[in-house]
Design a protein around this nucleic acid. Structure first.
Lengths: 355, 355
DNA sequence: ATTGGCACTCAGTGTAATGGAGTGCTAATT
DNA sequence: AATTAGCACTCCATTACACTGAGTGCCAAT
């Protein structure tokens, strides 16, 4: 809608209903065939009953607007990034999901395993069902609740913290304290913290700890104060390196459009460096619902010929992570979009601690 | 030596000193150039002062013995797997290591981080310095010592075990008990086990636990028995999924001999399935020192065009893991072999808890 | 506004010619 | 008996060329 008006104003020739219709069938055809599509096939494919010549005129307009592009003179047309964009934003008619696929998703994501396993399963399912690469971020730690915490002494004023969240997710971290503690002191500290913070969410714990440190500390004894300080070090923000689970990367090697050795190398390097992927996924975390990055839109060279369809997933109405699929720009958006949508919802539901 | 005699007996023509010398220069030349090498270059390359014609005769013999092979009539010769094998076993003259490389290794592996980090560093170093893929298995758990153990209750007779080994390596596992324990019972059990097994190696703990269970149990009270049973469940063998850290996989995409899309896909699938790689690495764990798998020798299709040079690494004279490099069959063995050898030694030393 | 007609472009394919690298074999040489 | 020169031969790689077919742009007719 938006695009429609913009283009009408901009071009002398119209980007009217008919051109949009043609663009739509062109993109659909290209997605299913992978071949540049010419005026003849478009003439028979579209229900518009127009002659190839007419269609050629329209195509010339579309090309001028940068929506399609011709690899060479005597080839058909191929959608550009803007063409795809317009297509997915305003033209696309989503297909209902294959019931078998939904069944597999539902089945795979209904068993109540621990979060880590579920994430892995989800990633694998996405990869297997789409034949592309699946990616799922680990749920944000803030929203989980503290179950148990404990400290062990290391050398040089360092302390190993082990804490368990939710049912059975174990984390550990080394903190640097400003004095040396012995094992029993640390045990006491752990017991104290367990007694007051067990069952609270990490966000709540962090807030409570800060508050304790800021208010008058005189009613606490030294041991309590030490414990609180260590909790502060443990849960101070920042360091939680976001991470994701990738599956089916090798599926991407099958696509001819990604077969270029250099592109493939860049892509896989991005996968193992993780950084760029995390950035990209972080962006989609901000918005709710399905997000799409087409080709160069992502801003990362490694993804130049790829599209990324993502959706955030939520537990208890709070966004805790993102999941998505990575594939060639030429992918079946009309199927992938609803697919990612329901996968995100199912994963969110599966992660919800039983009521 | 062995090969020499076998072949002399087998062929009518000799596989004498001279042929071996020629095979050696042929392999060296092919490794450095990547082109099939013909009689002319071999004539000038080898110090033997023979005419191309003579060399052609020798080459025909070598081909008959299956040591070299001609891609087509008018191309030069290329070593076969057996050719490479003979080369690395008996002909190869190892090159002294580049001092800069040793320095980088030494520097990278001398900082005393925790085991996990060191493994990662080692893998990365191998990949960076060889421009191929580095792989390092995690050290076997048996040889580490128990520092702390603790149990937390879960639902349905399940118990979450958290145990720390060495300084600060945290592991966790869910075990299924045959009755329900509450938190304080579990805490007692943990305290008891800590008091008697702390500081012992996992192998020792396992043995001790088994012994306790087999001997007369009447002098123990129920709580102690429960604790021992849980320790047994925790440390029973088997489930420790071996794992490895891979680095620089993407380096492999640069090699033309591995550029075939299908091969590459198989290879990367093997990397992410892990299973085959683990098997292969396990084999090299049994032998001490450097081991080499050339091409199809490995027995896994995925590695058909790859070679794997590995070495086990030891802590306190006990083999605890394997490390290696994966690259195309055509790699500079004379440099890689000593390189892997010293890397394994340096890693072993770095993992040795300070004396 | 749409369409038929036409000249034009260009990737892709098949065929043929050519050059060059390397071989195997034989006869001559040492 | 071992080595070498010579020669015919094979096969890959490259180039050139022609030809086809899909598709285009444009113009004039509808």
């Amino acid at each position: 809608m938006l695009y429609y008006e913009v283009y009408v104003r901009k071009g002398t020739r119209n980007l009217n209903e008919r051109s949009l219709q043609l663009l739509k069938t062109l993109v659909e055809r290209y997605i299913s065939d992978g071949q540049p599509v010419g005026s003849r096939v478009l003439s028979t494919d579209s229900a518009l009953n127009l002659s190839p010549a007419t269609i050629r005129n329209v195509m010339a307009d579309l090309e001028e607007l940068g929506l399609i592009h011709s690899p060479h003179t005597s080839a058909g047309r191929v959608p550009t990034v803007s063409g795809y964009r317009l297509f997915v934003d305003s033209l696309l008619t989503v297909k209902p999901l294959d019931t078998k696929e939904v069944a597999r998703l539902y089945h795979g994501l209904s068993e109540n395993e621990d979060a880590g396993t579920m994430i892995g399963v989800a990633s694998r399912l996405i990869a297997d069902l789409t034949k592309m690469a699946g990616v799922v971020t680990l749920p944000r730690k803030e929203l989980v609740c503290l179950r148990h915490i404990e400290f062990l002494p290391l050398s040089h004023k360092r302390v190993l913290v082990i804490f368990v969240t939710n049912e059975q997710e174990v984390h550990n971290k080394v903190i640097h304290t400003d004095k040396v503690f012995d094992a029993s002191e640390l045990q006491q500290a752990g017991a104290y913290l367990n007694s007051i913070y067990c069952g609270h969410s990490l966000t709540a714990v962090r807030a409570a700890v800060l508050k304790e440190l800021q208010t008058d500390q005189e009613r606490m004894n030294q041991a309590m104060l030490d414990a609180i300080k260590m909790a502060q070090l443990t849960f101070e923000s920042g360091d939680e390196k976001d991470d994701y689970v990738l599956a089916g990367e090798t599926n991407l090697m099958g696509f001819s459009e990604l077969s270029d050795r250099n592109h493939l190398k860049k892509l896989f390097e991005a996968f193992s460096q993780k950084q760029d992927v995390i950035h990209l996924l972080d962006q989609s975390m901000k918005a709710e619902g399905v997000q799409i990055f087409i080709g160069e839109e992502s801003g990362y060279q490694a993804f130049d010929h790829c599209s990324l369809v993502t959706s955030s997933y939520s537990v208890n109405d709070e966004v805790v992570g993102v999941l998505g699929v990575i594939g060639p720009t030429r992918m079946a958006y009309e199927k992938i979009i609803p697919f990612i949508d329901v996968t995100a919802k199912l994963l969110g539901a599966a992660l919800n601690p039983k009521t």
